[in-house]
């Protein structure tokens, strides 16, 4: 059994995530914030994974620019897409936490929230940018340039916003060392589970995109070619491995 096949990977992801949330509810102790603090095990992994996803997209974009292989562009696109979806969840869960903690859905003197929002808004422009360019190859190249630029912007933006305000957000990495052992273990399981969820979803979307691209190419080949030459045209295409998106 190959644990990395998409099916098995999905099952393992579901197990790890369920286990992580079970730990969060039944194993991790309550702290002085009370029950609302449990959202920490969802919100923080979501945010970390979304931001890492943006950086992964930048790495794929660099590889695309260097090699010109459209598969890297597809990976970069899918990474950004799923990180944006997780980003929506981060903003929603962050708002819920802020409402419980500070009584307001949105807090401006909260650097981590604000910088996440800026990064999120920047990445939202990826779609209008991409679809405003008609030529497919140029579209892929410009999208990659955007992904590289925005990827470099992520850490820079966090540093700048963080400097602008005194810190009141619970800091994950510096406070992780001070977490009780049970909470730290739970948090790490949730983080790994969330990273696996992101990876699994990326693989699903990528598989779907590549397959539909391949189907439409096969269909085009079927329509274009006269009946006599069909077998010889389709066979090599069918064996060509992952189709170019």
């Amino acid at each position: 059994m190959n644990p990395f096949s998409l099916r098995n990977f999905s099952i393992i992801t579901a197990l790890v995530l369920t286990g992580g949330f079970a730990l969060a509810f039944f194993y991790a102790p309550l702290d002085q914030e009370g029950f609302i603090q449990k959202i920490f095990y969802l919100h923080v992994p979501l945010a970390i994974v979304a931001l890492l996803g943006f950086l992964v997209a930048a790495v794929h974009a660099i590889r695309h620019l260097r090699s010109g292989d459209p598969i890297h562009d597809a990976r970069s696109y899918v990474s950004i897409h799923l990180s944006i979806i997780l980003g929506v969840a981060v903003l929603v869960t962050g708002g819920i936490w802020a409402k419980a903690q500070w009584g307001k859905w949105w807090v401006w003197d909260e650097p981590t929230l604000v910088s996440f929002l800026i990064v999120f808004l920047l990445y939202c422009t990826y779609y209008p940018l991409r679809y405003a360019i008609e030529d497919r190859e140029r579209q892929a190249r410009y999208a990659s340039v955007f992904a590289v630029t925005a990827g470099a912007f992520v850490p820079l933006n966090f540093a700048a916003v963080r400097m602008a305000d005194p810190f009141i957000h619970p800091r994950t990495f510096s406070s992780a060392g001070g977490l009780p052992g049970e909470m730290l273990v739970t948090f790490l399981v949730c983080l790994v589970g969330m990273a696996m969820l992101w990876t699994a979803l990326v693989r699903y979307e990528l598989a779907s995109k590549l397959t539909s691209a391949r189907i439409s190419r096969l269909r085009r080949a079927l329509e274009d070619e006269p009946a006599s030459s069909r077998p010889s045209r389709i066979a090599p295409l069918g064996d060509a491995g992952p189709a170019r998106s």
Binding site: T125, L129, R138, N157
Partner: peptide, 20 residues
């Protein structure tokens, strides 16, 4: 410049990038 939505994209891309 090389896209269809030139005037639209410049502020959309530039403003968040200039926040820092």
């Amino acid at each position: 410049t090389n896209s269809r939505a030139r005037d639209l994209l410049v502020p959309l891309l530039l403003l968040p990038l200039l926040v820092p």
